[in-house]
Amino acid sequence: MVKTILDELIEANEFLLPGNTACPGCGSTLALRYVLKALGKNTVLVIPASCSSVYQAIYPKVSFKVITYNVAFASAAALASGVKQALVKKGYDNVNVAVWGGDGGLIDIGAATVSGAAERNEDIFVFVYDNEAYMNTGIQRSGSTPPGARTTTTPLGKIVGFKKPMSFLMLLHGVPYVATASIAYPTDLYEKVKRAKDVKGFKFIHIFSPCPPGWRFDDSKTIEVARLAVETGYWILWEGGYRDGKINLTLSPPSRPYKDPSKRKPLEEFLKYQGRFRGFDERSLKKLRDWIEYQWNFINSFT
């Protein structure tokens, strides 16, 4: 029998242990399963304040089977830089040093630190699981919250601001590897992390990770919501990076059909499951469509 990617995934060790303290239906733990399957045991995770600092469970136990270092909110990418540089100095060149955090920690408060590490092209991974708000503190808006979404600090829906296009910003830093991924496509995520492992330098992987309590949808719908984000063109899967004076970008297979707007499902399909978009008005809808348009235009300019 030919060994498929699924066989490989089944064989790969599980580094997320069951019986953690994540919410039922958590997108982030699912993403972490595949990130760690791809990275393996030879990994140091650096985790800023986030849901992951809580769902790894409580001392003296932990639900992750790799070295895990819990650090202050805005420090993660710089701290990981120090870890990596020290390991290289000590002669351990091949350890995966990976920041694992949410959009609050890595797109808002820690964004400058991520940018600094990217500019220095530190040989680290930065994984953002993007659930589009500060979920651990109880659903407050972040720079990654989309227009129109209700959070406890945008009770009428996010009116001020867009969604910070962090993966584009990373790409423009000229780092060698940037990718987006989604928990609806675990093999795509797994393979991207595997490819990133072969890249020396800064690797940024931005993972779309729906949050049932934060987005107000049923626990069982996590995958469906994530898939609809891709099928409506709201979240686009791609990978790219800088090489030889040029930024390369390719659409990943799950997103390829949606380059053609007529193939995309109506945006309302994505919105309808989510309580955070309840009372969504035309203005917000327009802003969200503009955001989608902007993303595709940006991506199409490279492809």
Binding site: S75, L79, S81, G82, Q85, L87
Partner: peptide, 15 residues
């Protein structure tokens, strides 16, 4: 902020 973060990260990795 990053200077101290990087320094303590390096120390934690044994340097």
């Amino acid at each position: 902020h990053s200077a101290m973060s990087a320094a303590m990260g390096a120390s934690a990795a044994g340097a």
